[in-house]
Write a protein that binds this DNA or RNA. Sequence first.
DNA 1: CTAAGTGCAAAATGTTTGCATACTT
DNA 2: AAGTATGCAAACATTTTGCACTTAG
Lengths: 137, 137
Amino acid sequence: MNSKSRYKTKQRELLLGYFETVPGKHVTAADICAYLRSREASIGQSTVYRQLESLVDEGLIKKYIIDANSPACFEYVAPDSHACGEFCFHCKCEKCGKLIHLHCEELEEIQRHLSAEHHFRLDPTRTVFYGLCEQCM
Amino acid sequence: MNSKSRYKTKQRELLLGYFETVPGKHVTAADICAYLRSREASIGQSTVYRQLESLVDEGLIKKYIIDANSPACFEYVAPDSHACGEFCFHCKCEKCGKLIHLHCEELEEIQRHLSAEHHFRLDPTRTVFYGLCEQCM
DNA sequence: CTAAGTGCAAAATGTTTGCATACTT
DNA sequence: AAGTATGCAAACATTTTGCACTTAG
């Protein structure tokens, strides 16, 4: 996955610390900057991006691209991980933009089905179901 | 899906004409601009983007977001694939870019499931399953 | 005549990069 | 000391928007 050695810096710890407080949530780089700023522990945005890249590279967080013109989302991958991992599906409401996480046995079935019947290996971290959420429909 | 009425303009025809020459290929907005420029039939880039948006909206082309920092790709949806309606699912190979159409009873089930259990109305025409195809995996 | 589309240039957006400085090991 | 990280501001690339103008129906 990656080989570079990492230094343990204040900024890195702040980021990891923040991610630990929002397990299972999707946050953007901007969210992170705003949060840190509000705690007067602000760190440069380039550092945020660079650290995010490293953390993704190390597999500590996951990156999601929801939409061409919305910021990328990052999510903490808890080390004991029953968080949003391999079997987490995402629904995006086309109207209000809300992102819904689903951990569902039955949805995992579609993965098996696609693989067995259609010889397609679905990547749930890249796949987003578009549609309408309860409130919007 | 869409309700607005569309005018038949020279620019729209140029775009559609272009797409018909590259069935199954994915092209970027920049590709389109470059091609048209080379044919001295150049049209404004805002028009390209606006038309692309309309065409996606009308279901005539599909939009793919492969990566956060690469341009969006568009692909012509041939009209003779008329079956490509409410119950057509699409799988996109992240490696070779191939687009696979699936008409499958079992996949329709996930629509019912999402609706019944998760109160989410899936729109299969907008949803693309990303993953790896048989050859690439 | 009205609704829709066009083109330009400017703005917005999200992310990356150059560079001098500072920290970790 | 060597390697890595930081912060700022500037650079980037893609896409969107404001506005005056044109065109299709």
